[in-house]
Design a protein around this nucleic acid. Structure first.
Length: 561
RNA sequence: GCGCCUAUAGCUCAACCGGAUAGAGCAACGGCCUUCUAAGCCGUAGGUUGCAGGUUCGAGUCCUGCUGGGCGCGCCA
């Protein structure tokens, strides 16, 4: 429908150009939008407003000429000029209803597109170090990152989900010492407890499992405990595997799985850190000062230069970061998206600067970032601190157990990443029935219920009858619903381009609202078989689109509630 | 002090590359179940889109300044 109108306008512009009414060298991007207000018809364009200046005439006069030049088309019932010069299009009912058969034909593929053209895209998200259970912030990253991946897959990209973590640095040594202390029977407040040790109870669980010789299997590794409390290397390997397994279980329970687990240690083992340092030095962007090696990141927009190699000889985290991203580039990912908490936003400039300093042809502004703002967790009106070291933070597991997977995912993915999020646990638990996700799921379950009833009444859906009578769907609520359904592919594309999964949640809420309105206004199971089948078709189409959309969010579409 | 993000209804949030009368949910008020699931619908009320300028046919959206909030500013990650 939208394409039809765009085409008609395109023809009209060409006609006016031929007649000398419009400059011939003009090739305007014709924008046709669904209207927000039914009084404005089904679609509208601002074309006359945009072209008024180059055409040298008043917008409304130009709109007149454009309409006069529009080719005849059965899909358009009538047009009108409104406001400053908008052209409103009122579509014929059967033209609107055509979307129903399109959806039923396309099924699960409705809304999918090929704009990604198979391009390799990597999305790195969560990337929590294996020093403790995942917290709510990781949950938000997991929800946004995974939904983003689903969106990119739906728009034709070849997506790799990647999880990067440090399995060998100072933090891991701290983890090892903490587990060792627990294995020796020490508590966080006892003498001999390591400074800045991880105080959480889970450390005791790790120690216990280690001492009992347990074997743990994470997605990317399997380790059997040596049970020797003096073997630091064995403890370290076991603790990492144990916590990785715990994170994997939480992520699975959240509906998130990764294709690649990338270890920071591998960058050292494979000489990639050395290689990166050498390349940076060779590039001439480094210098030595105060016994350290610096990178002149200020050449690339950073506000101060950064130390690469400390005076003690160790590299700062920033070097493996650059090496890692260089490796992503070498693996052929033309588009890389890093989803991470905004508290790490300073790495953005730094990593990009490091990549530019390599001078290996990586574009400026590569990679892309999606940064989510902090999640504030409250319980009983009191903020719960997110510090791992304090050991008292709300885990993703807590939320899944208390709130449920669907609601947690929806809650964390339904808002713009840019906005801060207060996750009130009491509210999330007590308001379970008020959560918008149930509003959407309920619409899905309601359609299913009607279809079941049709089946039970021996009045099963007849596709042929339905398709022959789609023009019977002419109630205003039905038209609104169909127009909404028609917008779904655009919504998916727009959300994918903007990297904003929350737009899908928004769309689904509006779609569910249109459906509920329709459901209350028009009874489906009427005696008139032609009308009934047409309405059943509309129900099927609605169910399909809600299901497709919820799948993008990783939220289930229940058949009954 | 500098950098990034942010400010929209009482609360939580939307608003499609700048479009027409800024929309939902919760909370409030009034209606709707002998009819397909009332986890729903319909209606009422609720706004100087933080403030002040600017850009233009048109600004919540873009630009500048200011104010409030979050995050970051280490030879930590």
């Amino acid at each position: 429908m939208k394409e039809t109108i765009t085409q008609l306008l395109d023809t009209a512009v060409a006609t006016l150009q031929g007649a000398g009414e419009l400059p011939a060298d003009l090739s305007p991007a014709i924008k046709v939008d669904p209207t927000r207000d039914k009084a404005h018809g089904d679609y509208a364009t601002n074309l006359a407003l945009v072209l008024a200046k180059p055409a040298g005439c008043k917008p409304r006069d130009l709109a007149d000429k454009l309409i006069a030049a529009l080719p005849e088309n059965d899909a358009i019932r009538r047009t009108e000029i409104a406001g400053p010069g908008f052209i409103n299009f009122f579509a014929a009912t059967d033209a609107i209803a055509g979307i129903v058969s399109q959806i039923l034909d396309a099924g699960d593929t409705f809304g999918r597109s090929l704009i990604g053209a198979g391009e390799k895209v990597q999305v790195e998200f969560v990337s929590a170090n294996p020093t403790g259970p995942l917290h709510v912030g990781h949950g938000r990253g997991a929800a946004i990152g995974d939904c983003l991946c689903r969106l990119l897959e739906a728009t034709g990209f070849d997506v790799t989900r990647e999880f990067y973590y440090n399995d060998a640095g100072a933090q891991i040594n701290n983890l090892m010492r903490s587990v060792q202390a627990r294995a020796q029977g020490l508590g966080p407040d006892d003498e001999g407890w390591p400074e800045d040790g991880y105080r959480g109870d889970y450390i005791a669980d790790v120690a216990q499992a280690y001492l009992s010789g347990e074997t743990v299997t994470a997605d990317d590794r399997e380790v059997t405990a040596k049970a020797d409390p003096d073997d630091g290397d064995a403890i370290r390997a076991f603790a990492v595997a144990y916590l990785r397994r715990e994170q994997d279980l939480d992520l699975k329970a959240f509906g998130v799985e990764f294709d690649v687990y990338f270890l920071e240690s591998s960058l050292y083992a494979e000489g990639r850190v050395e290689e990166t340092v050498n390349a940076l030095v060779a590039g001439g962007h480094t210098y030595e000062a105060d016994g350290a090696l610096w990178l002149r990141t200020t050449d690339f927009g950073d506000d101060k230069d950064r130390v690469m190699r400390k005076s003690d000889g160790d590299y700062t985290y920033f070097v493996p970061d650059v090496a890692y991203h260089y490796n992503k580039w070498q693996r052929g990912f033309t588009t890389v998206i890093d989803e991470q908490g905004a508290d790490h936003h300073s790495t953005v400039t730094r990593v990009r600067a490091g990549l530019q300093a390599l001078e290996v042809g990586i574009p400026q502004g590569w990679p892309d970032y999606v940064l989510h703002q902090m999640v504030l967790v409250t319980r009983s009106g009191v903020e719960v601190k997110l510090s791992k070291r304090a050991g008292s933070y709300v885990t993703l597991r807590d939320l899944i157990d208390e709130v449920g997977r669907d609601a947690t995912r929806y809650f964390l993915a339904a808002r713009r990443a840019d906005s801060q999020l207060t996750f009130d646990i009491d509210l999330a638990r007590s308001q379970t029935n008020d959560n918008p996700v149930y509003y959407i799921q309920y619409a899905h379950a309601r359609v299913c219920s009607v279809l079941r009833k049709a089946e039970n009444d021996g009045l099963a859906f007849d596709h042929g009858v339905a398709m022959a009578n789609l023009e019977r769907l002419d109630a205003p609520q039905e038209k609104a619903l169909m127009n909404r359904l028609a917008r779904y592919p655009d919504s998916v594309e727009r959300a994918a381009r903007a990297r904003e999964p929350h737009q899908i949640a928004q769309y689904l809420t509006e779609l569910a609202s249109d459906f509920h309105t329709c459901y209350n206004a028009q009874k489906v199971m009427v005696d008139d078989a032609e009308l009934r089948n047409a309405r059943l078709a509309l129900g099927l189409a609605t169910r399909q689109v809600i299901g497709n959309g919820l799948a993008l969010l990783g939220v289930s579409a229940p058949e009954e509630m």
